[in-house]
């Protein structure tokens, strides 16, 4: 290619052009003071009764075609998982590291996902994780890389995702979720099974991500 520009040149040129266009020196004007006073008149928190958040969350999951089962306490998780697997005639599913053994019912296989390659994960019937926070308004599960939540590919490659959500992790609105997240971790918002509307605007469940999404909502 002719007209080669050295990388450093482009950086300087772009920054100089921006400064010139904004009509000031490349010396940076104080941005943080102006940022602090930007208008934000939307709800940062909503005084939503937990029961209302729960019913909204269940409605949203239902609309997304994701199944949700309510579990009375942490002690009931193993039985709930067994019921989901039995209903799907599934012999087990992969689990991410950090999942408490007490959650896993006897009689099924629960291989650890972390050492598996993507090809090996592709042969797993499903994956079990917890989450960082869930959002009622949008029916979203938010996962951040780490113990109990796995790596990003874990909840992507297998065709079935079973996610444990504690009621104390459920917030009403999107802004309420942010203070609970670590901005430095890889983060995935999951709202329903993978889908596309690219063919005549019909929402079709299941393209490349898991085609089945199960949520166990656990009282705590």
């Amino acid at each position: 290619m002719n007209n080669q520009i050295q990388p450093g040149d482009s950086r300087q040129r772009i920054l100089a052009r921006i400064a010139a266009s904004l009509g000031r020196d490349p010396a940076i004007a104080a941005a943080s003071a102006a940022y602090a006073v930007l208008p934000r008149h939307y709800r940062a928190t909503a005084a939503t009764p937990p029961a209302q958040s729960i019913s909204r969350f269940l409605d949203r999951l239902h609309e997304y075609n994701a199944a949700c089962v309510r579990v009375a306490s942490e002690a009931g998780i193993a039985a709930a998982i067994a019921a989901v697997l039995a209903a799907r005639s599934q012999s087990g599913l992969a689990v991410v590291s950090g999942i408490p053994p007490a959650w896993l019912p006897p009689g099924f296989n629960f291989p650890l996902a972390n050492p598996l390659t993507a090809e090996e994960l592709d042969r797993q019937p499903g994956i079990l994780t917890a989450c960082a926070v869930a959002i009622a308004e949008t029916g979203s599960l938010v996962l951040q890389s780490g113990p109990r939540q796995g790596l990003r590919l874990h909840t992507l490659v297998p065709d079935h995702h079973l996610c444990i959500v504690f009621e104390s992790q459920l917030v009403a609105t999107v802004p309420e979720a942010f203070p609970r997240l670590d901005p430095n971790l890889p983060t995935t918002f999951i709202s329903g099974p993978s889908a596309t509307a690219d063919i005549e605007m019909t929402r079709i469940k299941g393209v490349h991500g898991p085609r089945s999404l199960h949520v166990l909502l656990v009282a705590d």
Binding site: S145, R152, P186, T187, F189, I190, S191
Partner: peptide
Amino acid sequence: ERMNPYNSIWSGTPAGDG
């Protein structure tokens, strides 16, 4: 949609993930 199915957020090359 109230939320699209997936949003990904990451920075740089987080260890062991991606």
